[in-house]
Design a protein around this nucleic acid. Structure first.
Length: 309
DNA sequence: AAGGCGGGGCT
DNA sequence: AGCCCAGCCTT
């Protein structure tokens, strides 16, 4: 969805009287046509599988870190059947430091399901997509819109923020996704395929580049004059006291990450003593290794540990 | 509705 | 030292 397609789909303002969100959509759509990033999963030669891979990688990992990993991944496993046939150890090594390695496991399961049940083709429809491992409400909608060019209400953290501000008049959305937000998003999304796809991409891009969480660039915003939050004087975040980022140092997540890093770097099985050396607290380490085995990310063979085949 | 689950870069 | 990032899954 780069310039030409976006401009071709530029809507008119004729529906303004009936649809209170038409001006918002039009302005964001025009802005997107002029300034959209040139990301590889948006290129004309993209495939539905490539879109799905990008969406899974982008679940909580920023674009700048996903882009090189996505290129290497798609070169190595261009079709679902390729990933389905790969060694899981290779898959986890290719995932590298993208974080949340269970996503890599689910993506391979996804590929195997697509081969086994959908003739190797990414299925159509949000219901069928959501039945795939690791595909939730957001990813099913995103694949429907960006891979299949069908209408979907695509709501990620960027869209939530754009709607909270432009429509809701507040600094940031509530900590968890509410039914009211879902209703607003459905009301704002165009009813036609091309319009909905454009709005999905454009609203996400606006949140990523202009309507950012930390320092929004309201001066460069295409809807600055219509934004309810800006018109209200940019009031502060009412949920600030309830937001609590999860600690990192000393958590099981950090320990699991260290174990996975050690196994990724090794060509084969790793001695138990070597694994234990990555963390000082033996009880915590044992608990984390056990949870990794439970998750299917690690295998124990005798007294040694390795990534699964 | 809340909490677990990676990792890095920016303020 | 926080905060944030194209979320998903389980409880």
């Amino acid at each position: 969805m780069t310039g030409p397609a976006a401009r071709a789909a530029r809507p008119t303002t004729a529906a303004t009287a009936r649809d209170p969100h038409a001006d918002l959509r039009d302005a964001v759509g025009r802005w997107f046509g002029d300034t959209a990033r040139d990301l590889p999963w948006r290129a004309p030669d993209r495939t539905p599988w490539g879109v799905l891979v990008s969406e899974v990688m982008l679940q909580q990992t920023p674009v700048v870190r996903v882009e090189p990993a996505w290129r290497a991944w798609m070169e190595r496993w261009p079709e679902p059947a390729d990933l389905a046939a790969a060694s899981t150890a290779d898959v986890l090594r290719a995932w590298g430091r993208l974080g949340y390695p269970r996503r890599a496991l689910r993506l391979q399961e996804c590929a195997r399901t697509i081969v086994a049940r959908h003739d190797g083709v990414v299925p159509l429809g949000e219901e069928a997509l959501r039945a795939l491992p690791g595909v939730g409400e957001y990813t099913a909608a995103a694949v429907t819109a960006f891979a299949h060019a069908q209408r979907a209400v695509v709501v990620d953290t960027n869209v939530r923020r754009v709607l909270a501000r432009a429509v809701g008049g507040v600094a940031l959305p509530a900590p968890s996704y509410t039914a009211a937000e879902r209703a607003t998003a459905a009301a704002v999304a165009p009813t036609d395929d091309a319009g909905a796809v454009l709005w999905a991409a454009a609203s996400m891009e606006l949140g990523a580049l202009v309507c950012t969480a930390r320092s929004p660039r309201c001066g460069a915003c295409p809807v600055r004059d219509a934004c309810a939050w800006r018109r209200a004087g940019r009031p502060g975040d009412e949920h600030a006291a309830r937001r609590r980022t999860q600690a990192w140092a000393g958590t099981d997540r950090q320990v699991r990450g260290r174990v996975m890093a050690a196994l990724r770097e090794a060509p084969g099985p790793v001695a138990g003593d070597t694994v234990r050396a990555v963390w000082h607290d033996a009880a915590q380490l044992d608990r984390c290794v056990a949870s990794l085995v439970e998750d299917g990310l690690v295998e124990q063979v005798g007294g040694r540990y390795r990534l699964p085949d």
